[in-house]
Design a binder for these strands. Structure first.
Lengths: 211, 211
DNA sequence: TTTGGATATGGACGTCAGTACATAACTGTG
DNA sequence: CACAGTTATGTACTGACGTCCATATCCAAA
C-alpha cells in the first residue's frame, strides 16, 4: 500500500480492531496493555513511510498512527514529542539506507566492476526504491535546521562513505559518495530514468582519477 | 537581520507602521491601496528568507508577512494559496542561485583554474551564503512531492549544468554539476568547513577525466 | 490472588494555521 | 468631483494539529 519499508509486514495481527459487540464479559478489546514489543519501532518506520508518501510537511501524529495501525495516543506515548519522532524516523531511514548499501557491497564479487555496479545501484534507488530515496532526502534536509539531528545526519553520510572507501581508497570513496548523493538528488525528481551508461561513466571517471 | 536576500533592501519605507495616533483627520494609515508595485516579489523573497532561517516546516503566511513587513492579508491577496507562494519562492530561489553561479562564471578570467574557482564557490556557498544554500535545498526537496514543481526544479538544475558545461564540455559539465550538488548537500550541515584542497581535488579529478 | 508498576488508549483542550471576506484606500477616467 | 475598478487590509471562521491525562489493561512478583 505504500511501496516503502513494510511497517505492517511482521504485523501478526493483534492490533485492536472492533469485534467488540459480542461477549460483553470477555475482555472488551483484544490485546491492550503491554505486549507488541516492537511497536515503537513500527511507529518510527511508519513515520518514514508517511514521509515517503506525502513529504515531510505533512508528517503528523495522526497520519503516522493511521499508517502504523495504532491509536493516536500510542504515538505520543512512545515519543514524547514530534521532534523525538522525527529523530527516530531519521535513525530508521539512515539505518535502512546504510543497510541497503552494505548489502549491495556484500553482494559484489571480487572481479566486479564497481562503476557498473554503482550505476545499477543508482538506477534501483531512483526506480524501485524511489519512495525510500525520497524519504531519505526529506529527512536529511529536515536535519539542516535541527542542530540535534545534524550529528546523526553526518554519521549517516560517513557510514555511506565508509562502504565506498572500503571498495577503493579514501579520496575515491569520498568522491563516489558525493557523486552518489548528487546523482540521486538530481535524478529522483526527473520524470525519466538516466541511462546506465551515463551514470556508469560518471563513476568511472572518479575511479579512473586514482593516481 | 537574516543573512539572506535583502527582502527589505530596496524598501523605500512606505510600508505602514503605526504613527497613527495623532492627526485623527488625516488618512489613518499611510500608504494603502495600489502602490508598492513589487510587493508580490518582496513577499516571495520573504518566503525564501523564512525558509532559510527556520526551515520549510515552519513556513506560514504569518511568518512571511512579518518578514516582508506587510499585513497578513497581503500574502493571501498576492498568492491564492500557500502552494502558490511556495512555487513563487522556489522560482525566486532558483533565480537567485542561477544568478549567483552565472556571476561566478562571468567573473572567471581565461586562464583561471576551474577546479580551484569552483572549490572557492563551494566554500562560499557553505560559509557566507550558508542560509541561501539551506533555503535552496529545502525548496528543492519540497518539489519532490509536488509534481507541479518538478519541472521548475529540473529547469533549475539544468540551468546550473549549462553554466558548467559552457566552461568545459557536456559530460564534464554535468559531472561538475552533480559534484557541486553533492558537495553542498553533504557539507552544508557539517559543523566545520571542508578544506579547499580536498574540494578542489574532487573537481579536478572530474575535469582531468576528459579524454 | 492481590498488588504495583509499566504499557496503552481515546477523548478533550488550547493553539495556530490557511482561507475567506467585508470593508477601506487608492488610481484613473469622464 | 463622481464613479468604477483595482489593490490592499484587518478580522473572523473552521479545521487540524500537538499534547495532555484520566482511565484501562496487562504482566510479574509477592
Amino acid at each position: 500500500m505504500c511501496g516503502v519499508p513494510p511497517v505492517n509486514a511482521a504485523d501478526a495481527g493483534p492490533s485492536r480492531t472492533a469485534e467488540v459487540t459480542s461477549q460483553p464479559v470477555l475482555p472488551k478489546r483484544r490485546q491492550r496493555g503491554p505486549n507488541d514489543p516492537d511497536r515503537r519501532d513500527r511507529i518510527a518506520r511508519a513515520a518514514v513511510a508517511v514521509i515517503a508518501e506525502h513529504g515531510i510537511d505533512s508528517l503528523t501524529h495522526r497520519k503516522v498512527a493511521a499508517m502504523a495501525g495504532v491509536p493516536l495516543g500510542s504515538t505520543t506515548y512512545h515519543f514524547a514529542s514530534l521532534e523525538e519522532l522525527i529523530a527516530a524516523a531519521l535513525d530508521k531511514a539512515a539505518e535502512a539506507g546504510i543497510g541497503q548499501l552494505q548489502a549491495w557491497a556484500n553482494g559484489l564479487d571480487d572481479g566486479d566492476d564497481v562503476a557498473s555496479a554503482l550505476a545499477d545501484y543508482v538506477i534501483e534507488s531512483i526506480g524501485e526504491r524511489r519512495e525510500q530515496t525520497l524519504a531519505e532526502y526529506n529527512l536529511y534536509v529536515l536535519a539542516l535546521h535541527r542542530p540535534h539531528l545534524q550529528q546523526a545526519a553526518v554519521a549517516w553520510d560517513s557510514a555511506l562513505s565508509d562502504v565506498l572507501i572500503a571498495l577503493t581508497d579514501r579520496p575515491t570513496g569520498r568522491m563516489l559518495g558525493t557523486l552518489l548523493c548528487g546523482l540521486l538528488m538530481q535524478n529522483v525528481l526527473r520524470p525519466d530514468l538516466p541511462s546506465k551508461a551515463d551514470v556508469e561513466e560518471t563513476f568511472r571517471r572518479a575511479i579512473a582519477g586514482t593516481a
